[in-house]
Design a protein around this nucleic acid. Structure first.
Lengths: 152, 152
DNA sequence: AAGGTTGGTCAATCAGGTTGACCATAAGGT
DNA sequence: ACCTTATGGTCAACCTGATTGACCAACCTT
């Protein structure tokens, strides 16, 4: 690999992994999820119950865009929107059973990928990689420049 | 970092690096380049002279989309389109001086980032990372699943 | 010379996002 | 309590970057 190509190669590695996750999802009958949905799932699986504006902030888009996304996810059966118990303006968004299944499929596949990587380069070396990447991200994060969003 | 989070963290590391490159470009007066333009530059800097359809193929978009992109890059002064010497239908696209300056600024910044990473985690460890990532990409590539495109 | 292929453009359309106006409810100051 | 302001959500219009489809001119066969 040429000097200066490491970041780009990381992107490629991620991209290959991402594609594999999507292929797996399609195989399991979740072929109708788009990349941006992942961020919604991620948030919901941690908070279990969020509002549209929170999701919009997490995605880095306007609330209108988020609302549209949620409508789509609702008709596809991944999420549910009910009246918020504490705020009658708001609608509480949460994962359906199908949504949870999809989330765990994703988590499993990311882990499977990491396992494969460990098998490929050796567990000890992958530990080094893990620590290094973690340090790099932490450093960037400390300088206030971290987005999970891979959108350019 | 949690088990299964490595690919995502790689994406974050790349994203932070990418943002830094764009910030640097803006600082140097190349603030009007968009992400997709990078792929055009990359191709042109290696081939020095490509046709619109080749670029389209490299970008993974239709030739119409590529043409539009090229028109934009031309008006911004990064590229030049002249009659192809061997094919009177085609237009040969090449980098202008400004384009070359921009490309080398990008290359320098990627290298500076890689240097910073080496300083952060140690040169030997970063060598391990480099080898590992290279192996991972090579493996994915051998299975025919590699795109440089970080677009989801 | 004739037919099919290829580089490029024009035009219409679509998808996903944005901005802006608006309503209903909530929260706070007085 | 009351009036003002802030906030969650929706509706509607629009922008941008892409797509598909039709087409032309030049190329490459044969």
């Amino acid at each position: 690999m040429a000097y200066g190509d490491l970041p780009g190669h990381m992107s490629m590695a991620f991209r290959a992994a991402m594609d594999r996750v999507h292929a797996k999802l399609a195989e399991l009958g979740y072929g109708d999820v788009r990349p941006a949905h992942g961020f919604v799932f991620q948030l919901l699986s941690h908070t279990n119950g969020s509002t549209a504006v929170e999701i919009a902030a997490h995605l880095g888009v306007t609330k209108q865009a988020a609302t549209q996304l949620l409508a789509e996810l609702e008709t596809k059966g991944y999420i549910r929107r009910e009246g918020h118990p504490l705020d009658r303006r708001a609608r509480l968004v949460s994962l359906t059973e199908r949504g949870w299944h999809c989330v765990s499929a994703v988590v499993n596949e990311w882990r499977a990928i990491e396992d494969d990587w460990a098998a490929l380069v050796g567990a000890e070396r992958l530990d080094v990689v893990r620590d290094a990447v973690c340090a790099i991200v932490a450093d960037a994060s400390s300088k206030g420049q971290v987005t999970m969003k891979p959108l350019w």
